[in-house]
């Protein structure tokens, strides 16, 4: 939890809250979270784009060796998610791991991603869950 200083929580808030990705003007690919250079071609000619909130689960891992503060959510599912113009890695929630299938439609949800003990900051961000509505 030490890595979530007030300054880092504040600096990263817009990207954590809103799925805003970096888009490369050279190769056209998007990456999330935004970096200083395109991870695919190295170009620094980037702008920003808001990603769609619904995508597909490409693959996932079920993590049992969670840190103690995540034990209440164990096992934690980490998914590789295809949002069309970008892929990202995020936690997949609200599902029993046995019910999850590669190719499932998943939607972004706003959740707590870290909590600094009983008195520190609550860090919010985006996770995904299988779409079961509509």
């Amino acid at each position: 939890m030490g890595e979530w200083s007030s300054a880092r929580v504040w600096r990263s808030r817009v990207y954590r809250y809103r799925l805003i990705a970096g888009r490369c003007r050279s190769c056209g690919r998007a990456h999330y979270p935004p970096a200083n250079a395109c991870p695919y071609c190295g170009s620094r000619d980037l702008d920003e784009v808001e990603l769609p909130r619904v995508g597909r689960l490409i693959s996932y891992s079920v993590v049992y060796a969670t840190p103690f503060e995540d034990r209440d959510r164990s096992p934690v599912v980490i998914g590789l998610i295809d949002l069309g113009i970008a892929r990202l890695v995020a936690e997949v929630v609200d599902v029993k791991p046995g019910d999850l299938r590669v190719g499932d439609r998943v939607e972004a949800v706003f959740r707590r991603i870290a909590v600094d003990g009983n008195t520190g900051l609550i860090v919010y961000g985006i996770k995904f869950r299988p779409v079961r509505v509509g």
Partner: peptide, 13 residues
């Protein structure tokens, strides 16, 4: 609510 949900996360959705 799940363990990573609170009134703020639900309110945002």
């Amino acid at each position: 609510a799940g363990p990573d949900e609170d009134s703020t996360t639900m309110g945002l959705e």
